[in-house]
C-alpha cells in the first residue's frame, strides 16, 4: 500500500508541477492583471456600447453558427448512422480530413473559393465557422445516434409508426444528448473563434472579442484591458458549458465537455 502511495506521488508531481507553472499560475496572473486598475478595465468594457456590442456580436455569431450547424449536420449524422461498416469508414475519412486540416489552410481554401465580393465580411465568417464546426457536430451526433438501440426503432415500427414518424418521435428525442453536447462544443469553439474573423472578417472582424483582445495586447499594448476581455470571454464560455451541462444533467442525458478550441 505504501509503495502505491509513493508511486502515486511520484507519478503526479511532475505533470502537476508543469500544469501549475504554465497553466494555473499564468491564468491566475491574467485574472489578477485584469484587476490591476481595480474595476477600471471592466467598467470600461461594460460602460462602452462599442465593447458591449462586440460582446453581442460574438455571442450572436456563436448562437447562429451553432443553430445552423445543428440543422445542416443532422442529415449527415443520420446517413452515417444508417450506413454499413464499409460506407462508414469512407465517410469517417471524408469527415476527418476537414476536421484535422489546419484552420489557416481551411480559411485560405475558402479565400480562393469565394468570389471577391464575398471573400470578406460577416457572411464569410458565418460560412467558414459553420464549415469548421460541422465535422465536430456530425461526429457528436453520430455518437449519440449510435447509442440508440435498434430494437427501440423496430418496436416503434411494429406499433405501426411510419418511418418519418419513427424519426420524429423516437430518433430525434433520443439523439438530444448529441444535439446538446455538440451544440455546447460548437458554441464554445465559435465563441473563441479568432483566426476566421481576423483573416476574413474585414471591418466587422475587429468586433469579435478574440480579435479585440489580440489587438489590445499587440497594437494598443493595453495589458489590463486585454486581460479583462479575456476574462469576459472565458466567463461567457464557462457559463455556456456549465448551463449546458446543467441542462444535460437535468434531462439525465450524461455529461458533455467542451473540447478542441483550435482557434
Amino acid at each position: 500500500m505504501t509503495t502505491r502511495r509513493r508511486a502515486l506521488a511520484a507519478y503526479l508531481f511532475p505533470p502537476l508541477a508543469v500544469a501549475a507553472a504554465f497553466f494555473v499560475i499564468p491564468l491566475a496572473e491574467l485574472a489578477r492583471q485584469s484587476f490591476s486598475g481595480g474595476l477600471a478595465s471592466y467598467a470600461r468594457f461594460f460602460g462602452d456600447s462599442y465593447y458591449l456590442s462586440a460582446l453581442v456580436i460574438t455571442l450572436g455569431n456563436a448562437v447562429l453558427v451553432t443553430m445552423v450547424t445543428i440543422v445542416v449536420s443532422y442529415p449527415l449524422a443520420f446517413t452515417y448512422w444508417q450506413a454499413g461498416p464499409r460506407r462508414r469508414s469512407l465517410l469517417v475519412i471524408l469527415l476527418l480530413s476537414p476536421f484535422y486540416a489546419n484552420v489557416v489552410v481551411k480559411v485560405f481554401g475558402w479565400m480562393v473559393l469565394l468570389p471577391a465580393g464575398l471573400r470578406e465580411g460577416y457572411w464569410a465568417i458565418l460560412l467558414i465557422d459553420v464549415h469548421r464546426a460541422m465535422p465536430f457536430m456530425v461526429l457528436m451526433l453520430a455518437a449519440a445516434l449510435a447509442r440508440i438501440e435498434p430494437e427501440v426503432m423496430e418496436s416503434a415500427r411494429m406499433c405501426g409508426a411510419s418511418p418519418s414518424r419513427v424519426i420524429r418521435t423516437v430518433v430525434l428525442p433520443l439523439s438530444m444528448p448529441g444535439v446538446v453536447g455538440g451544440g455546447i462544443l460548437v458554441f464554445s469553439l465559435t465563441l473563441a473563434s479568432f483566426i476566421v474573423p481576423l483573416l476574413v472578417g474585414g471591418a466587422v472582424g475587429g468586433r469579435f472579442l478574440a480579435v479585440l483582445m489580440y489587438h489590445q495586447i499587440t497594437i494598443a499594448q493595453d495589458w489590463g484591458f486585454g486581460a479583462a476581455i479575456g476574462v469576459v470571454l472565458l466567463a461567457t464560455a464557462s457559463l455556456a458549458i456549465a448551463v449546458g451541462n446543467r441542462v444535460v444533467r437535468g434531462a439525465r442525458l450524461g455529461r458533455v465537455m467542451g473540447d478542441g478550441f483550435g482557434g
Binding site: F22, I25, E29, L30, S188, Y214, L233, L234, G258
Partner: peptide, 21 residues
C-alpha cells in the same frame, strides 16, 4: 481538472496568459 484544463480553455486566452507570464 488541472491536467485536462488546457483542453477546454480557449487557446487564445492561454496564449495571452502565457505571453504575459
Amino acid at each position: 481538472a488541472v491536467l485536462m484544463g488546457p483542453l477546454v480553455l480557449p487557446g487564445i486566452i492561454l496564449g495571452i496568459a502565457l505571453l504575459q507570464y
